Simulated assay, not measured.
Amino acid sequence: MSTHQFTGVIDRFEDDLAVILLEACGEVIDEVVLDRAELPADGAETNAVLTVTLTSDGEVAALEYEPGETTGRKEKAQSRFDRLAERQPKDDEQ
């Protein structure tokens, strides 16, 4: 049985379920929903980045938390937010 790996980002939790967005080439291509208990303990938080391995029939075969990627994305998002917060208002915004 063949498998495929994707980058997954935990988008949200709905009760005991985790919604993970699957990415390929930087674009969201699908999502999977798992029980929160199936997540790696150190990566069970919103915006955590995971390597998701799917079987050829779309079942999750493995999840691996990626702490370096998670930290990098958080820092990038914070930097972008900080730049927007420091932006000078345009004349018609004052």
Rank of each mutant, 00 (worst) to 15 (best):
K90F: 03
G26H: 00
H4W: 05
R83T: 13
A18V: 09
A48N: 05
E38F: 09
G72A: 14
A24T: 15
C25I: 06
F81N: 06
T3W: 03
L22I: 03
I10V: 14
D35H: 13
L39D: 01
V52N: 03
A61L: 02
A37D: 05
A44D: 09
L22S: 00
A41N: 09
C25S: 10
V32T: 11
E66V: 14
D82A: 13
D82E: 14
E38P: 12
V33I: 14
A44Q: 08
P40W: 00
L39W: 03
G72D: 15
A77T: 14
A41P: 12
F13Y: 11
E45I: 04
A77H: 02
E23I: 02
L84W: 08
T46F: 00
H4T: 15
E69Q: 11
A37K: 11
H4P: 00
V49A: 02
A85H: 04
E86V: 08
Y65T: 08
S2D: 13
A62S: 13
L34C: 05
D35K: 15
A24P: 01
R83G: 03
V9M: 04
L17M: 15
D92Y: 11
Y65N: 05
V28K: 02
T46K: 13
R83F: 08
S56D: 12
D57Q: 12
L39T: 05
S56G: 08
L84M: 07
E45L: 11
G43K: 10
E27W: 03
A48G: 02
S56L: 08
D91W: 14
T3V: 15
V9K: 10
F13K: 06
E86G: 10
V28Q: 06
E93S: 06
A37L: 05
E86M: 11
P67W: 07
R12Q: 10
T46I: 15
A37W: 00
V32N: 01
E45D: 07
T51R: 07
F13I: 02
I20E: 01
E27M: 10
V33S: 06
L22Q: 02
Q88P: 00
D16L: 07
Y65F: 15
I20A: 03
L21M: 01
L17I: 11
L50A: 04
A62D: 12
R73G: 03
E23A: 05
H4S: 08
A85L: 13
D92N: 12
E69W: 00
R12A: 06
L63R: 03
E66T: 12
A44T: 04
K74V: 12
D82S: 11
